[in-house]
């Protein structure tokens, strides 16, 4: 069973970094090129090539309006809850559950008492089922919120296509592991599912 614990350790370690990292970006925003851009009339010179030319009076009015809108944009805060965020947290939740399920797997070689073994077995079984359900829900939420992000024409190497493929395979493997538990071979299938799900997340993280 040490393999299961090693896999669980990897999942937990990976997850720890992902949670800490979140959506933090570097400090380049402090220099605020966006604000410089909106206040500088010259900034419109090049990008206006795609739009119809304007007279200088209209241009001034546009710049003034753009400056107001830029201020609104600076105040904008992304929504805390969105379909995309829900999918993200469900995926990370699945990884935690994979690790927890693996760590609660009963040790075969330690000879625990019957009561301890059945208690561990119960926890492991419940967590396994919860993991499979969460994995299925994650895949469903991904299909609903990111349906326009994957295209077959981009090929198998496309990160979004690989994400969908590995995530779906991972969820199927977990469901399969639950359905054949406690039979032999279910730990391997479950671990493979967890690794596939972890790889899917990493590809688009």
């Amino acid at each position: 069973m040490s393999l299961i614990k090693i896999a669980a350790g990897i999942c937990l370690a990976s997850f720890s970094g992902w949670v800490i990292a979140d959506t933090a970006v570097s400090d380049v925003t402090k220099l605020s090129p966006t604000s410089m851009y909106s206040q500088n009339p010259q900034s419109y010179m090049l990008a206006l090539n795609e739009a119809a030319p304007m007279d200088s009076q209209a241009n001034d009015a546009t710049i003034e309006a753009a400056a107001k809108l830029s201020a609104q944009s600076a105040e904008f805060e992304p929504p805390f809850f969105s379909g995309s965020n829900a999918h993200k947290y469900m995926g990370l939740g699945t990884l935690i559950l994979v690790a927890a399920t693996a760590m609660t797997a009963p040790e075969e070689d330690e000879g625990p008492t019957v009561s301890t073994q059945s208690r561990t077995q119960g926890t492991h079984q419940s967590l396994g089922r919860l993991t499979a359900a969460m994995a299925a829900a994650t895949v469903t939420s991904g299909l609903l919120t990111h349906w326009d992000d994957f295209h077959l024409e981009d090929g198998i190497a496309d990160p979004d296509n690989l994400h969908v493929l590995l995530g779906t395979l991972g969820a199927i493997a977990m469901l399969n592991a639950v359905s054949k538990a406690p039979g032999n071979g279910h730990p391997g299938t479950g671990i493979a599912g967890g690794i596939a799900m972890g790889a899917a997340i990493k590809l688009t993280w």
Partner: peptide, 20 residues
């Protein structure tokens, strides 16, 4: 009037300066 062209990424992408 607040956008005019797709070239102005940061008109709509509020965190474009950070690459988001």
């Amino acid at each position: 009037k607040g956008v005019k062209s797709l070239s102005f990424c940061d008109k709509c992408h509020t965190q474009a300066a950070s690459g988001v």
